[in-house]
Design a protein around this nucleic acid. Structure first.
Lengths: 113, 113
DNA sequence: ATCTCCAGTTCTGATTTGGAACTTTATGCA
DNA sequence: TGCATAAAGTTCCAAATCAGAACTGGAGAT
């Protein structure tokens, strides 16, 4: 089954996943809530390849979760801002955060003493 | 960057994603909350390939989110049950559900009139 | 004997990624 | 002038992952 086939699923969780239930997409959204908004910021912060960042931003804009806003005209430059729809995704990320804090305590970096 | 490199990330959201931030994994967890517990149930319900179901169940058991319990001895058969750690992931799925209900209303199936 | 069920495993071709280089528009600087 | 840098993508190739279907193996049912 293809991923996109879920967008009409009876289950709202499945529909949500068909849109944002992807590794990097959720990480990009986390970054948005942390205040990041530019392409390179996402690329550096998430560690995803530029290819993937490009693709995911496109989808998020199409879905109305992010909005592409010009912040410079001369060299046309855009930043990505959460829409209301996007901001309302906050609780979901909070739930991830809480669960991670409780159940996945950070281990000391393997090499460091 | 590899996905698994996130498991020591400073951000609890990233750590959570490194474990369950995968299309099918979250769908399997949803099924668990709906009361499903058997391999074929997950395969049929999610539409993921058996290969993927097998892999994800293994990971979830390793991570202590699901527990493999024998429900039949003669033909050794197992079912997968949420642990306490797994049950505490409920709020995250609820948040997805709420967001999906509000922002992704189900469209009439494209073909049907 | 043969069929069916369940829980996986295995195989192969197609899709998606990762990683790095390249492009475009514009600024800084010497 | 000429070179370097920056942001936001795009393009290319090899490698990893996935979809789909078939196959395995134990056990009860017909």
């Amino acid at each position: 089954m293809k991923w996109s086939d879920l967008d009409d699923n009876w289950c709202p969780v499945a529909r949500t996943l068909s849109l944002v239930g992807d590794r990097w997409t959720l990480l990009i959204l986390r970054d948005c809530f942390l205040g990041l908004s530019k392409f390179d910021e996402f690329a550096n912060s998430t560690g995803a390849t530029r290819h993937v960042i490009s693709d995911r931003l496109k989808r998020l804009v199409e879905a109305g979760i992010l909005e592409k806003q010009a912040y410079s005209d001369r060299p046309k430059r855009y930043e990505y801002i959460l829409t209301e729809k996007g901001r309302e995704f906050g609780p979901a990320l909070s739930a991830f955060k809480d669960w991670g804090k409780k159940h996945l305590p950070i281990r000391r970096a393997s090499g460091a003493v």
